[in-house]
Write a protein that binds this DNA or RNA. Structure first.
Lengths: 212, 212
DNA sequence: GCGAGTACTGTCACCCGGTGACAGAAGCGT
DNA sequence: ACGCTTCTGTCACCGGGTGACAGTACTCGC
């Protein structure tokens, strides 16, 4: 939660932190990939970071939250992109552009991103924890759709659109992390275009392996 | 797992069971609604059923699995309906019909169904557990789409279609369980038709509260 | 330099979900 | 009667997660 403004020097007041959310994430990612999620205990992660188990749970509410750090902070980007999109654009088109714009990563970050996503879609417990984190993401899309269509946020269509868009993106994330053949945005673009075309037979039969 | 064939009398061999998956589900549903999910311990459920905690975990792998009993057994229905659908039907149209056909409930079962779904979409931990159970459901759709489009099961489009269909159905389930104004199939139909139309603006702006 | 306040930290105790091992209970067939 | 089978309870144990509380290491004002 204390988002550590990187620009500021740090005229902090109390006792300095013994670690950071980011450091715990790096350690956890390494241990999870090396020896598995279940085989890694919170005590181990904390020990490597040089803090106590209790402190880990002050940075993350749950063991399964530790890989969602960056993702959580990207929701705001999507929200802003959607808010600033031209009014005459079809709803799904606006969403597609916002998602693509929010998913350009620096090449040096890609390997870590891929490992993280691999774990998130592979380990059952992590996949289950996704629900909570995708919630804010989903809500951003839902709010936008509700506003643009003049419907209530809790009515069927905005909810269905938000969920379906998220589901499509998750499919794209997953395929991208499993294969190593193209840019993430290519997968996202293909999936979202197909969604906007209603997954019509002519569209989804198109490419042999989707994208290459 | 022991699916207790209702038709058979029961010339069983060993010690008779002290309870049943169904009974545990009923007790759990009642306790969850009365006093909340977190506030209900497995010991309590087991105690009411007159068995030990260990026995509960022989019927269900986890506390959060106890409400998914019937849902899990409906996946086979969907799979069969999809397998028997005419070849000339568009993919999404076939899926829509199968889903609708599989979701006709007897009027007397509706109140319980609604309570269950309410909990499943309200309690965070239960919503998280959904992932595992929806997996088989999703896979049924994915296999069908893959077969019909001649693509591999692990390629992008079948995965995206399966996920998006599921997401839409979940939205329909959720809205239906929160409101009490129409048949479940009406919500499902509206959602899936909109999906097949690519959530085009003209479609989703249509009804004021989606369905009534 | 010194106390006050602040923001972290570790330790401890506890609950509960989940699991493996093993012995006991209660039915079946012969 | 006996063995086999199927279910059961007890026990011990692990790990995730939480509340309470004391301790530590800074900054600030004086």
């Amino acid at each position: 939660m204390p988002a550590d403004p990187v620009g500021k020097a740090r005229p902090r007041r109390g006792r300095p932190r013994g670690t950071s959310a980011r450091q715990l994430e790096e350690i956890a990612l390494r241990l999870f990939t090396e020896q598995g999620f279940h085989e890694t205990t919170v005590d181990q992660i904390a020990a490597v970071a040089g803090v106590s188990r209790r402190t880990f749970f002050r940075y993350y509410d749950a063991k399964s939250d530790v890989l969602w750090n960056e993702f959580d902070s990207e929701v705001e980007t999507i929200r802003e992109l959607l808010a600033g999109s031209p009014e005459d654009l079809p709803v799904l088109e606006a969403v597609r552009r916002a998602v693509l714009a929010a998913n350009h990563y620096r090449a040096e970050d890609v390997p870590e991103l891929r490992m993280r996503m691999n774990l998130l879609s592979t380990v059952a417990e992590l996949a289950a924890s996704a629900t909570r984190h995708y919630d804010a993401w989903e809500r951003a899309v839902i709010s936008f759709v509700a506003r643009r269509t003049g419907q209530a946020e809790d009515s069927l269509y905005p909810l269905a659109v938000g969920r379906a868009v998220l589901a499509t993106c998750r499919a794209a994330y997953e395929r991208w992390s499993a294969r190593a053949d193209a840019d993430l945005t290519v997968y996202l673009d293909a999936g979202l275009r197909a969604l906007a075309a209603g997954f019509a037979d002519e569209v989804i039969v198109g490419e042999p392996e989707g994208v290459v």
